[in-house]
Design a protein around this nucleic acid. Structure first.
Lengths: 242, 242
DNA sequence: AAGTGGTCTAGACCACGCA
DNA sequence: GCGTGGTCTAGACCACTTA
């Protein structure tokens, strides 16, 4: 039986505190794959929490793909080695967290009227001025990705800022909080330019991601079209049927 | 102001009925991108629903990436043309829904001891017997994907079943309900075999998806490694930061 | 100060799966 | 029938944003 200490004076929500303890327990193998999970009522009673609060904590873990519930039966830990789920972060954050020492070279930084396809993605009027940036991202000293981004001029970070930090971090420091992103993931062959920059052979396979990001007022803030070396990158996702 | 009729005798949850009406309104453009959304209290009052129920309906749409909320400010419709989000379905379902008349050719169907990497994914003991299936999926008369799946023998559908329907559908009819999948998406070049089967040139770019699927008791049910023609397929995903 | 969303409670009734 | 999760109510207090 897992010991859980709650801090009711903390600003961290109770359901989140509970979820975190269980998440760690599952990740650390304290709760074993396939094991029966404490039922909602008993857990609520044990923690002196209301059932909805307890339920929400459990639901967090179901949404993360760590638990599975079956009506009339119970809740169980999913049987699998877990990887980190995809989150709404930039590649820079991903790499920094993995200790990969990312570095960025800004190849181009231009201001000009928006292209039609980009205007559609960003929901901008034709002819609006946007900043277009092309960056080469390295990790472990090797090129990893070629990234092209388009942003409204009033939001775009300076060129120097983009060398130092990730795009999303730069936007955050300007008070822009990315809350939502729609992505399309595909594949293509490297053209000569891409191959040269990424240190691959022409026609090498590349992973393509196009992304439109929205801030917390629902405004389209950024459209990016990125190519990754297939030999060095992939995306993990977890899908839950509710 | 959107007219909403609720059926309290329906087995469909109230929060779901509400969410559906608003989802349709947003998709149809009745609620316009960027528009202010009715606040929670007022909506609950108008619909004669409790606030938690109303809140849950709204939260569904936030999770789907249609609405964005900001504390102290309000709720707004996201500014963007929406695409269909990724759901937990198989390629067969996807294509059938899109009216693409999918067809399947089963290339191989073999029973044998599990390979080590597959055993790890499915959480099986070394040497357990599994069914390995290789299928070629067509849409619109053209090859689209080459799919390799591994399943415990007691769960595997018959060969004939796989020609007729999708894998997940066949599993459903055996009482196996897929609830969770972990996927890894990458890219590679077609080898000679793949190129021939998919009607592409050798070294053509392919989208690779590896997936482990789990049923509603958390058991690993299926591991698949699939390659798609990059010219004909991609994945859409929506990420929400909560 | 007013209005918004975020969290939490203490119950209730129902639907489902299983013994 | 019993235990499980799924839904729903009618409130409460708090945190944050904007005016």
């Amino acid at each position: 039986m897992l010991q859980i200490d709650l801090d009711r004076s903390s600003p961290v929500p109770l359901y989140f505190q509970v979820a975190q303890v269980f998440e760690k327990a599952i990740m650390d193998g304290v709760l074993k794959p396939g094991e029966r999970f404490e039922n909602e009522l008993a857990l609520a009673d044990r923690l002196n929490l209301s059932r909805p609060t307890t339920r929400r904590a459990i639901q967090e873990l179901v949404d993360k793909g760590l638990l599975v519930r079956k009506r009339g039966v119970g809740t169980q830990v999913v049987q699998a080695p877990v990887h980190r789920p995809v989150e709404l972060t930039s590649l820079y954050d991903d790499l920094a967290r993995a200790g990969q020492e990312p570095a960025t070279r800004v190849l181009d930084y231009a201001v000009g009227p928006v292209a039609d396809d980009v205007a559609a993605q960003l929901n901008l009027a034709a002819g609006t001025e946007v900043v277009t940036v092309r960056r080469l991202r390295f990790s472990g000293g090797q090129p990893l990705a070629l990234m092209t981004n388009h942003l409204p001029v009033n939001l775009a970070p300076e060129r120097e800022e983009l060398e130092r930090s990730g795009l999303y971090q730069a936007l955050r420091s300007r008070g822009v909080h990315i809350r939502l992103a729609r992505q399309r993931i595909g594949a293509k062959s490297a053209d000569r330019d891409e191959a040269k920059l990424l240190d691959e052979k022409p026609k090498a396979p590349l992973l393509v991601m196009e992304r439109t990001a929205f801030d917390d007022s629902g405004r389209a803030v950024e459209y990016g079209s990125h190519v990754y070396r297939a030999s060095r990158y992939y995306f993990d996702t977890t899908l839950v049927d509710r």
